[in-house]
């Protein structure tokens, strides 16, 4: 089979964009590798973005591809796709998950009015500096959100840990969205279109919930009764 049907390559603003046809990941991967071995000079020094469609790729798939590319002087720049597994894997490796678009488009996240999108992303680890999570529904973190980490959610964000990074809940304008954390001292917190800069903590930390009340961001003790 000729590999031209499996992979398509075109030039974009960020470098090269590789789109994948219908085949298994190992087949596509070796088609891409073959293409690169055939034309090393064409690829040398390029930033490569990969459109994987709905394919599910794990961190280990992306690492081995990135290392293969890196040994040939090619930088894996972005991985775009519709699977949230793939997207999370790419984000964990610090890869871009969006291609540059000349006109900013906002509809990458489905609009959530009220909280229609009840799906939630479960994050079972501490988010360290440089990690960014974007999700259309709610985000639940079992761990800390460190300074330099970012969460952008269409719905609410619940952190069973310390929030010290950046959080934007209700990112598509949902004013019902809220943020709660066991210890709330974010670098910056946004709810819908409102921005709150965290005041310096006084006294001991306690679980808090933040929401928009009468058009203003307000924090109160997170009550469990």
């Amino acid at each position: 089979m000729s590999d031209t049907s499996l992979i398509q390559i075109k030039g974009i603003r960020d470098g090269l964009l590789v789109s994948l046809g219908e085949a298994s990941w190992p087949e596509l991967r070796s088609a891409l590798q073959e293409r690169i071995e055939q034309q090393p000079v064409f690829f040398q020094g390029a930033n490569l973005s990969l459109d994987v469609g709905s394919r599910v790729l794990e961190v280990s798939d992306l690492i081995s591809l990135r290392d293969f590319l890196s040994e040939r002087g090619i930088r894996l720049w972005a991985v775009v796709g519709s699977s949230s597994v793939t997207e999370n894997a790419a984000q964990l490796l610090g890869l871009a998950t969006r291609l540059f678009k000349p006109t900013p488009q906002v509809e990458t996240l489905p609009v959530a009015k009220g909280i229609e999108d009840e799906t939630a992303l479960w994050v079972n680890k501490t988010l360290r500096s440089g990690t960014r999570i974007e999700f259309a529904g709610h985000v639940i973190v079992f761990g800390d959100v460190n300074p330099g980490a970012e969460i952008v959610a269409g719905g609410s964000v619940i952190i069973w840990g310390r929030l010290r990074g950046f959080v934007h809940a209700g990112a598509q304008g949902n004013k019902e969205a809220m943020v709660c954390a066991l210890d709330l001292s974010p670098t910056q917190l946004r709810l819908a279109d409102e921005i709150a800069l965290a005041p310096k903590r006084q006294g001991k930390s306690q679980p808090e919930v933040v929401r928009i009340i009468n058009g203003q961001i307000q924090a109160e003790t997170w009550n469990f009764d």
């Binding site: 961190v59 964990l92 490796l93 610090g94 680890k125 988010l127 360290r128 500096s129 440089g130 990690t131 460190n146 300074p147 330099g148």
Partner: peptide, 12 residues
């Protein structure tokens, strides 16, 4: 903060 970023990459 940079150490934190590196730790995150190593974890990933």
């Amino acid at each position: 903060r940079d150490a934190d970023r590196v730790i995150g990459l190593l974890e990933a």
